[in-house]
Design a binder for these strands. Structure first.
Lengths: 342, 342
DNA sequence: CTGAAAGCGCTAACAG
DNA sequence: CTGTTAGCGCTTTCAG
């Protein structure tokens, strides 16, 4: 292995000079800089990460806890991860993968000084992990939005506002009885933050408009068809559907087309999912995009800023946008009314 | 931060004793062991990973490169990752996430001694990364199977055999003209290892049985329907379909049901995908499971063994299993004939 | 503008 | 069975 001492010798300078060339923390004469850089290149030197973290007390690694639970939308998770990894790299950070299967993992990584900070996905409304995280030295950012006191920064999509926006659209289409076909029962049962907030926005918007709205768990499988049938059977006058379940969407879509509840001429669906998922359905659907990759990169930005000593930024929610489709072409996009406070 | 010296003092022993209690590398009297363990617990000590890696020249971290490219089946990726992470943890390893977006990442991680080994997914038949990997000090395992010389261990599902097995099944159902509805064009174009091998097995089996088989790229979207129509238009006598595209599967399924090419009574499809994907289709399909999680844990086992100094195990392919379904109940499973050599 | 040297926290000889 | 100590490779004072 080639060390900084080898480089120093090759360049005919001291070890500290090599170090300062790399960090840029003091001014170096152009000549020595060049010699050092050449030496680094010819020897193919890369500093030892462990030695560096020992001396500098920072690792340039961020721990990311991802959900590996049943019921999560795997596309969304992957896109968030993509956003986090890519953006963290632009700040010079790597990602240590931690999972919800291993709840102690974050503590391990933090207390072992493996990471400079933690990013936690799949937050529940009253998440037990938050207590643990508060006692760690490393800054933490949540991807999600728990209830109650916000003891740490949160980044997420504004699911609550998305609920309002979807209801707006369905009302504008003339629907007066609405149903939210949502996440699988297990996701709702553990009060996953996004599911709770979407339902809250949806129901509040329905109440505000004085229309009936109901919320239904939906499995991520072909059984989604049965859920649609049950909802319709229970109240045949339901005509407007907000669908928030990536795997169920094609089945719900198919069933609603079959039963004449959705068509190009008479759209009865607003889908809440990543853009590519909405486009993969065999026909046009209005949709509110879950900007999963953007959430990931925003979270990475926030946490890198905190590592750099920035002030914790509180809550940051990305606003939803509605995309209206009649054919596969986009007809219009609509942002939430700016008159209502977030 | 609490260090090993604090623990030693608290326990009234030397630093090295604490170290040896943790590593178990020499015998410790029960009494001192207890005192040390108590001290560790009361102080909440975790050894500093960087210091450890500096002194021991090992990190207990494995680098995992995952594909973030268009066209990959996101369920499969997630399941492989799940398997790798879970199994690596049982061996005491954490995972550093590297992505195909950052091709130099593996080299960075390796040369910076951030990882003890590398695991590489999404291998292409003639993969340019292999050259780089060969020159690294850390052991590497491929999840996939490149063509040509095997310069490093490979773990994968036996996609080639899966092609044979699918053809067996379709032939047994009486089909004589077969089509493989495969990965998106970009995946085929870059000669992703699994796609190449599946096509090879499929075509070889067709040739061996003297039946016509054709291979078709298929987008992961509703446009999959059009692909089915084109295949049928080009040769209306095609009746047996092997579908290897998780996102396209529901659409292909729907279209083949509509056109009467698939039903419970007359199955025309074999799906190659994770079990849960096959089950999410609205009706029974015969399927060959892609055991993605098992691939991940097998790969983790192999690489942990190599880190521990084990002999590189060459190629390890997991055999396919066919599951026949008529209702949602499983009717039978079939393994490949053991008479044919792998 | 550059060097020398003191650690960072841990492991693993070496020495009892 | 346990303690002492020399590094591991780097960052960062302190001293020129």
């Amino acid at each position: 292995m080639v060390t900084i001492a080898d480089v120093a010798e090759e360049a005919g300078v001291s070890i500290s000079t090599v170090s300062y060339v790399m960090s840029g923390k003091r001014t170096i004469s152009p000549t020595t800089r060049q010699r050092v850089e050449r030496a680094i290149a010819t020897l193919g030197f890369s500093p030892h990460a462990g030695a560096r973290s020992l001396a500098s007390r920072s690792t340039n690694v961020i721990g990311l806890q991802i959900p590996l639970r049943s019921g999560v939308d795997v596309h969304v998770v992957m896109e968030v991860v993509t956003g986090v990894v890519a953006q963290a790299r632009t700040h010079g950070y790597d990602i240590l993968l931690l999972t919800s299967d291993d709840p102690r993992g974050m503590e391990r990584a933090a207390k072992g000084s493996m990471v400079d900070a933690l990013l936690v996905m799949d937050i529940e409304s009253d998440d037990p992990r938050i207590g643990v995280l508060t006692h760690l030295e490393q800054p933490t950012v949540l991807i999600g939005l728990p209830e109650g006191r916000r003891t740490m920064p949160c980044v997420d999509f504004d699911f609550e506002e998305a609920g309002w926006l979807a209801v707006d659209r369905l009302l504008a289409q003339g629907h007066r009885r609405l149903a939210l076909i949502g996440s699988p029962a297990e996701v709702l049962a553990r009060h996953t933050s996004y599911a709770d907030r979407l339902a809250r926005g949806f129901l509040a918007a329905c109440a505000a408009a004085n229309v009936v709205g109901s919320v239904h768990a939906c499995p991520s499988s072909a059984d989604a068809t049965a859920v649609v049938d049950e909802v319709v059977a229970a109240d045949p006058s339901v005509t407007g559907f907000l669908v928030h379940n990536e795997s169920a969407l094609p089945h719900v879509f198919a069933r609603l087309v079959e039963t004449g509840k959705h068509s190009s001429a008479k759209p009865g669906i607003v889908a809440l999912c990543p853009e590519d998922v909405a486009l993969s359905v065999p026909g046009p659907v209005d949709s509110i995009a879950v900007p999963a990759e953007a959430i990931g990169s925003a979270a990475a930005d926030v946490i890198c800023d905190m590592i750099a000593g920035g002030t914790p930024p509180g809550v940051r929610l990305i606003a939803p946008t509605l995309t209206v489709r009649t054919s596969t072409d986009v007809v219009a996009t609509k942002h939430p009314s700016t008159t209502r406070a977030t």
